[in-house]
Design a protein around this nucleic acid. Structure first.
Length: 435
RNA sequence: GGAGGAGUGCGAGAGCGGCCGAAUCGGCACGAUUGGAAAUCGUGUGAAGGGAAACCUUCCGUGGGUUCAAAUCCCACCUCCUCCGCCA
């Protein structure tokens, strides 16, 4: 949620920043008007309430003095005021919830360095990385045997079974098997082990309350992309960011504890409602995938370092896996609702000949903290909202695809990077199946 | 799921429907004392919102209700503990 106080103080600045994201200035004007009205009503209702409280105190006093006549008279007056108070109170609450509803739909202010743009075509590439780059090697080229899409390799090696997945849950629910399933597990373990020590490993619930979904900004705005478990009032999380952001919801943390760094691997569920018919093959776009998330609760001063750390860790894993990737600075049009700045990591998939987003590292400022009410007490005793930073490290489905394609040998087998050996039972070769 | 008990400030723990934003103890902060510390004594110590300020309003698990007035009474729900049932 954006800062209402800031909107009051510098409405033009906030409007200009949000205009970059397509929020009409008129909408912001409506919010300002509603806020003024809400505060006017608030003052009125609080004044009435103060009077009622005062009268009630006097009634108590009259009763103690056995002055029943006065008590009755005051009670009568108080009752009348109370009726009026109730009326004004209803109006105040109506204005308040209308205001809150509008605010919940407003996205975060983009950071000044976020480029202007309408969609992902306007994202700005920052750099690329590939094996041997530091030694002057050229961007890798790929042989014909690497130009096979992972869905074909999956069938060929018996490690990906999309038909079975579809049979169980419908399309876009992949089923990995054998070495393919193990590879997925290996990737998660490899990453979690790398982050261990610096980041506390969490295994959160995969379902979350509405309130929890609100805190990150996934609700109410993205309802259509979320799986709902209606009977129990729960939602399937689209990312571990959701439970991690709410872990300290409503708390006041000691500054000395910050940054609090958490990592979690969970299944992530997305309905992909607006993407029907796109990327239907393979595991490029699926309804359920596993992802390791890195999360920081920090002070505003620590935010830059936290952001750099998460990014470095996500990149570190891609580098350890020897995958070619590029870094993109998202433009205003592609930025998520809650983010102030986001860098995406896209891995190159030679088989489908595309760059695939495998990580999104975002700085949210205090936008999520305000929704989730996560604050910290500074050394001098004052209270402020924390900043949140998080990023994927990484989303495994697409990494799996890029890995299998990039490492396919001329004989059809796949040879995985050595770093995964300990997690693959020492066997890094996924052999072609005998015919 | 069934029966019983409990949910109050940083922690423990009081609290007759009005004088309770809340006793007391502990913690913490500051001050006094001390060469320094311990001990002792004193003072202070929740949050949110509104207001230029004085100050006002709200919050005692959550949400409703009764009342002129609710931490205190009523209802529902949630969570935790104990026992029973079921279960990976």
């Amino acid at each position: 949620m954006i800062d209402l106080v800031q909107l009051r103080r510098e409405p033009e600045f906030v409007k200009a920043a949000l205009a970059r994201r397509g929020v009409p200035g008129q909408t912001m004007d409506e919010i300002v008007t509603l806020d003024v009205e809400h505060r006017r009503l608030l003052q009125e209702v609080e004044g009435l309430r103060a009077e009622v409280n005062e009268l009630s105190r006097q009634v108590g006093g009259a009763h103690r003095n056995k002055d029943l006549a006065t008590a009755r008279e005051l009670t009568e007056k108080s009752r009348e005021l109370g009726d009026r108070e109730r009326e004004v109170n209803d109006a105040t609450e109506a204005a308040g919830s209308a205001l809150r509803e509008m605010l919940l739909m407003i996205p975060n202010l983009p950071a000044p360095d976020v480029p202007q743009g309408v969609d992902d075509a306007d994202n700005v590439e920052q750099r690329r990385w590939w094996v041997g780059m530091d030694e002057g090697a050229q961007l890798p080229t790929y042989e014909a045997h690497q130009r096979v899409p992972h869905w074909d390799i999956g069938v060929e090696l018996g490690i990906l079974d999309l038909e079975s997945g579809a049979k169980l849950a419908g399309s876009m629910f992949p089923l990995y098997r054998g070495a393919g399933a193990r590879l997925l597990r290996a990737l998660g373990s490899f990453a979690l082990d790398r982050h261990a020590g610096d980041y506390e490993e969490i295994r959160p619930p995969t379902l979350a309350l509405t309130e929890t979904m609100m805190s990150t900004g996934h609700l109410p705005k993205s309802v259509d992309d979320m799986y709902a478990i209606e009977r129990d009032g729960l939602w399937a999380i689209p990312t571990a960011e959701v439970p991690l952001t709410s872990m300290h919801r409503g708390e006041i943390l000691d500054e000395a504890r910050l940054p609090i760094r958490l990592t979690a691997q969970t299944a992530c569920f997305r309905r992909e409602a607006g993407a029907a018919g796109r990327d239907t093959r393979g595991v490029l776009r699926v309804h359920e995938f596993d992802k390791v998330e890195l999360f920081n609760y920090c002070t505003p001063e620590q935010a830059d370092d936290a952001f750099a750390d998460v990014l470095a860790r996500a990149e570190g894993i891609l580098q350890a896996l020897g995958l070619t990737y590029r870094v993109l600075l998202l433009c205003t049009g592609d930025l998520g609702t809650s983010a102030a700045r986001t860098l995406d990591l896209e891995v190159f998939s030679p088989g489908v000949d595309r760059w695939l987003e495998v990580s999104s590292v975002s700085w949210f400022g205090d936008f999520q903290a305000r929704r989730a009410n996560v604050r910290y007490r500074t050394v001098d005793g004052s209270i402020a909202l924390v900043h949140t930073v998080n990023g994927s490290a990484l989303a495994w489905g697409r990494v799996w695809a890029a890995l299998v394609e990039s490492n396919r040998q001329s004989d059809g087998s796949v040879v995985l990077p050595d770093v995964l050996a300990p997690y693959m039972g020492g066997n890094t070769t996924i052999a072609s199946r005998p015919a």
